[in-house]
Write a protein that binds this DNA or RNA. Structure first.
Lengths: 150, 150
DNA sequence: TGACAGATGCAACTGGTTTGCAATAGCGTG
DNA sequence: CACGCTATTGCAAACCAGTTGCATCTGTCA
């Protein structure tokens, strides 16, 4: 899991560079975030971290998330249910497809769509600062029924 | 303003058809909605309606909005600030571009993007149930216009 | 006009997130 | 390594959009 370790190191570096203190609770939260491959919300992060350190408080999680977000270390998304979910930002840009039945989040990216967005915005006299694209879908039963896949 | 009147009539028809009562407060809220050409939130609708009838309560606005939404008479959107904003649904599908400086909302639609979304979802094994596409942009100074910028 | 279920106003409540405050603990200095 | 300054933490209270229980009121239909 060196990938995770270096991700943690990256987080730490970002904080240090910003002149912030590296506390136990931040280290813990950073590790939880680095290990997450889903899109946990504050409570989820808190739960995972709390298991390691039962003195951690939820407000510290919120404060840390806000901090990391303004540092640009993580991204915050609010899907339809309204709660904020987080993911580390050390990956290329992508959008999300949410399975309406399971809540599972699938990431995807489409340069074509991005290009179209920019074109549309330009036609309206705008330049895009950021965007939000979420697809809510239902799994289609595999046609051939071939096994495997993922 | 017959456009508004017929929109109100449309709302009333939808409620009647659903076997619901046409109360004074609903009539008022319906009118406010029909007259709105922006994307007001519950408080905004309440404020406008309250000016006509100071006995109206905010919870009635919330209840009515939920009702109209399930009737399909209005659409609810939650942009980045998280609060629910509403617009009447008697128009064709469109997405939104939000001016990050003024908060102004511009509507647009792009069959090309919709098609791409469907294609992407299909490739991932999903069929789209609904989607959310919001562009956050900044107005570009008109091209002919001199004025150094940026 | 009367009866009754649906609708309203009010206040209390919810759930996610933020904040004031006193106590604690990084981190640079001596 | 101990010291001190200030950032950070935990806790509880506060916040805010939205919801809900309940007693009262009012459309609607006979």
């Amino acid at each position: 899991m060196t990938g995770i370790d270096q991700r943690v190191a990256g987080f730490e570096g970002q904080l240090r560079d910003a002149g912030l203190r590296m506390t136990q609770q931040r280290r813990l939260i950073l590790r939880v975030l680095a290990e997450a491959d889903d899109h946990p919300d504050a409570k989820g992060i808190f739960t995972r971290a709390f298991a390691q350190d039962p003195t951690l408080s939820l407000s510290t999680v919120y404060r840390t998330m806000k901090l990391l977000e303004t540092q640009g270390a993580i991204e915050r998304h609010a899907f339809e249910d309204g709660v904020s979910r987080y993911e580390h930002a050390d990956q290329q840009h992508h959008d999300h497809l949410i399975d309406v039945e399971s809540g599972q989040v699938v990431e995807f990216s489409s340069p074509e769509i991005e290009a179209l967005q920019a074109k549309i915005a330009a036609e309206l006299g705008y330049e895009i600062v950021r965007h939000r694209l979420e697809l809510y879908g239902r799994k289609i039963p595999a046609p051939g029924k071939r096994r495997g896949r993922r």
